[in-house]
């Protein structure tokens, strides 16, 4: 077995600097970094998989970050060490982003029992960054539990928050009148908890009404399965109730075996993704294959060759030639 990665001890000891560097390492796009990152994960991974991981999603501006500050402090008060990964959707196509979530987490960002890291989503449409899973492992290895992941989407397809978290909290605001009907189906399907935020000031009544309507709709759709909570993150109202609901929800999922099932599925999908990445990386590292690919690319671009067929020709030339003859 290879020597210990120099960051292992620091991360395990909960050293902020080591953890921060380690996240940079796993997020790095450099080839040599990715080998180091693999070594680091190999050592840290076995001791993880127990921390509570909560996805927090919802449209920009609904108050996710503000809510995390309040909820995080509640967890800290209960003895937790809170990790936050916030994935910012503002990333621009070419790279570059403006990360402002931490600004709304004033208390958490100066609490000794918390660690906050913002990452650009890198344009991934599922709303997560490409290395959120790895970062979660690191945070957990550094002793953070619970860990919250803030992101805008829960969609299907690309890596989404449902694939990395034990349970998902969807944050909503009321007031527009048609939020229940307008709410995305996908959102509801994935929500373990629906949180109506900003139940304060002039919009309090409308928010409460929206929450009530949704609760009865959900009860009809999936009896006893999703909970609706009403909070004001700004004024700190309903936060203790929400925190309790979170723990109860986890207990329920654990008891029913659902949590175990989710995690197994998540690990399977991580494996598939890792395989894909590795194959692609291997292909681009091999100069011969890379040249062959660029040649095939031209035929693919012109529509002369079907892309799946091109992939086969590249990686399984033997089989591809026999199928192409038959087509």
């Amino acid at each position: 077995m290879s020597a210990r990665h120099p960051l292992v001890a620091g991360v395990r000891a909960g050293d902020r600097r080591a953890l921060s560097r380690a996240i940079t390492l796993v997020e790095s796009r450099r080839g040599d970094d990715s080998e180091q990152a693999a070594a680091l994960l190999a050592e840290l991974y076995p001791a993880t998989g127990r921390a509570l991981r909560v996805g927090v999603t919802g449209a920009p501006g609904v108050g996710k970050s503000t809510l995390l500050d309040a909820l995080g402090m509640q967890a800290v008060a209960a003895g937790g060490r809170v990790g936050v990964l916030s994935i910012d959707p503002s990333s621009q196509l070419r790279g570059g982003s403006l990360l402002g979530d931490r600004v709304r987490m004033a208390r958490l960002s100066s609490s000794d029992a918390a660690f906050i890291r913002a990452s650009p989503s890198g344009g991934a449409s599922g709303g997560l960054g490409p290395r959120t899973r790895e970062a979660l492992v690191l945070l957990e290895a550094a002793g953070f539990d619970p860990i919250f992941v803030e992101s805008v989407g829960v969609g299907q397809g690309e890596l989404a928050v449902t694939e990395v978290c034990d349970l998902v909290m969807v944050v909503q605001i009321g007031g527009a009148g048609d939020e229940v009907q307008g709410m995305k189906r996908g959102l509801l399907e994935h929500a373990d908890l629906v949180v109506f935020n900003k139940a304060d000031g002039p919009q309090a009544a409308a928010t409460e009404r929206a929450a009530r309507e949704l609760a009865s709709l959900l009860e009809w759709m999936r009896p006893g399965q999703s909970r609706v909570e009403l909070v004001s993150a700004l004024e700190g109202r309903g936060i203790d109730g929400l925190y309790r609901a979170l723990l109860e929800e986890r207990a329920r999922l654990t008891e029913s075996g659902e949590l175990r099932e989710r995690r197994r599925a998540q690990r399977r999908s991580w494996l598939s993704q890792a395989l894909e990445e590795l194959v692609i990386a291997r292909q681009s590292r091999d100069p011969e294959l890379d040249r062959a690919r660029r040649e095939l690319e031209r035929a693919v671009e012109e529509g002369e060759l079907a892309p799946p067929l091109a992939a086969r020709q590249l990686l399984e030339p033997d089989k591809a030639s026999s199928t192409s003859g038959g087509a």
């Binding site: 621009q92 570059g96 982003s97 403006l98 990360l99 600004v103």
Partner: peptide
Amino acid sequence: AAGLSDLGFDVELGP
């Protein structure tokens, strides 16, 4: 902050 992020920096805005 706006300019640097447009150029391709990851910009964190402090409070």
